[in-house]
Computed example of a mutant assay.
Amino acid sequence: MSSIIDYSQPLSAVLKESTKEAHQNIEHSEGAEALLRGELAREEYARFLIMLWYIYDAFERALDRHSTHPVLEPTYNPALLQRAPSLAADIAYLLHLPQSSWKVHRIHSELMANTPAALTEYVTRIQDLANSADPTPLLAHSYVRYLGDLSGGQTIRHTLAKAYALEDNKGLSFYSFKELHSSKTASLGEMKRIKDWFRRGMDAGAGANQAVKETVSEEAKTVFALNNGIFASMQPAAGIPSSKDLLGTIKGGSLSEQSFPLSTVISVLAAVCIAHFVLVVGGFMGEEGYAKLLAVEDWIAALWQAK
């Protein structure tokens, strides 16, 4: 049952509350989990980035077009947030082509010849908003995409670097941001400041206008659904079983009949529990905590591979 949303709150608080369920749904989609685990084949990951490029290209053009709109202007900062150029650079690197030539690659040609309905629906929605009398809902697209890139995208970045042997940020520039007030690469702490700045901008743009808050809130749910469609169109490669597989094995009560040995399941789950205990009791916070979390992740991965 949906909770009652208090629209007297700032827009950032309204969005946090109203999109909880949608956020959880997308986190547990098969495509999203495969991305988080680095289980997409390199070509499939490139295909995913190409779809993202079309999405960002559409909505960043829309933001440029409506940059002075009172609801959108406080969060309009293409020098800080724009992702389409970074996506183009990453795609070109992954496909071993000059940045000006990646659209001639077979993967792009195949995607254009058989464009997923989810991608067409997503881009069409953005274009419809850009051409509408009221482009206010575009703020929801910025909220879902940019704050997601500044948050979960940083965890994905580490996973992808290992999965595809990417070094020196090559092929990973999509996940890098500049500092809010300089051209230096943003640290995790600086990314938090960027997110705080963005939330303040959303709140300022919406003000006390309840209709705006309701409109952006409803559109945010639509954006999550559109992103879910993109993830559903992805084709995860066979690899390490997901947490759902492991839990399903245990709940099914037939461990000996599954493809995962009992000792492996117990070892991995024990490692996860120990890792959680260490991180919580140790009180690791900020960038230090993130570094330690990555070290624990490497340890668990090594444990799995040894089985």
Score class of each variant (00 low, 15 high):
234 M>L: 12
273 C>Q: 15
8 S>E: 08
234 M>I: 10
144 V>L: 03
51 M>N: 01
229 G>K: 06
192 K>M: 10
266 I>K: 08
223 V>K: 00
290 Y>P: 00
56 Y>R: 09
122 Y>W: 09
95 L>A: 08
67 S>V: 12
175 Y>D: 10
169 N>C: 14
238 A>H: 15
243 S>C: 13
165 A>H: 15
111 L>D: 01
17 E>H: 09
144 V>W: 04
293 L>P: 02
165 A>Y: 15
290 Y>F: 10
266 I>F: 11
295 A>L: 05
120 T>H: 12
33 E>V: 15
113 A>Q: 07
60 E>R: 11
196 D>M: 13
102 W>E: 00
151 S>P: 05
130 A>D: 07
150 L>I: 09
41 A>P: 05
253 G>I: 00
39 E>T: 13
76 Y>M: 01
304 W>H: 04
188 L>V: 13
278 V>R: 09
211 A>D: 15
105 H>E: 02
252 G>K: 01
73 E>T: 15
130 A>G: 10
174 F>R: 05
171 G>M: 01
264 T>S: 02
88 A>G: 05
103 K>R: 14
49 L>Y: 02
27 E>M: 07
147 L>S: 04
108 H>K: 10
48 F>K: 00
60 E>C: 06
198 F>G: 02
55 I>E: 00
82 Q>K: 14
289 G>N: 00
88 A>P: 02
73 E>I: 13
224 F>M: 06
231 F>Q: 05
154 Q>N: 11
178 K>M: 15
52 L>M: 11
52 L>F: 09
299 W>D: 12
127 Q>W: 01
35 L>P: 07
128 D>P: 06
164 Y>F: 14
193 R>E: 11
20 K>L: 05
180 L>W: 14
124 T>L: 09
1 M>I: 00
255 L>V: 01
102 W>G: 01
140 A>H: 03
53 W>F: 10
276 H>C: 04
286 G>C: 05
197 W>C: 03
134 D>T: 14
4 I>L: 07
147 L>I: 09
232 A>H: 10
227 N>L: 04
284 F>L: 05
192 K>P: 04
7 Y>V: 03
280 V>K: 11
113 A>T: 09
87 L>G: 01
4 I>R: 07
179 E>C: 14
244 K>G: 11
139 L>A: 07
118 A>H: 04
243 S>L: 14
10 P>V: 04
41 A>K: 12
176 S>N: 15
125 R>T: 07
64 D>F: 11
204 A>V: 11
111 L>H: 00
190 E>K: 15
186 A>G: 13
3 S>C: 04
115 T>K: 10
215 T>Q: 06
98 P>G: 10
160 L>R: 06
29 S>R: 05
127 Q>C: 10
275 A>Q: 07
123 V>W: 09
79 A>C: 13
90 D>I: 03
305 Q>D: 07
275 A>W: 00
258 Q>H: 08
106 R>C: 07
152 G>H: 06
271 A>Q: 09
173 S>E: 12
239 G>I: 02
36 L>M: 15
301 A>L: 10
303 L>W: 03
22 A>I: 01
111 L>V: 03
74 P>L: 07
175 Y>K: 12
215 T>I: 06
27 E>W: 10
206 A>W: 03
256 S>P: 00
137 P>T: 11
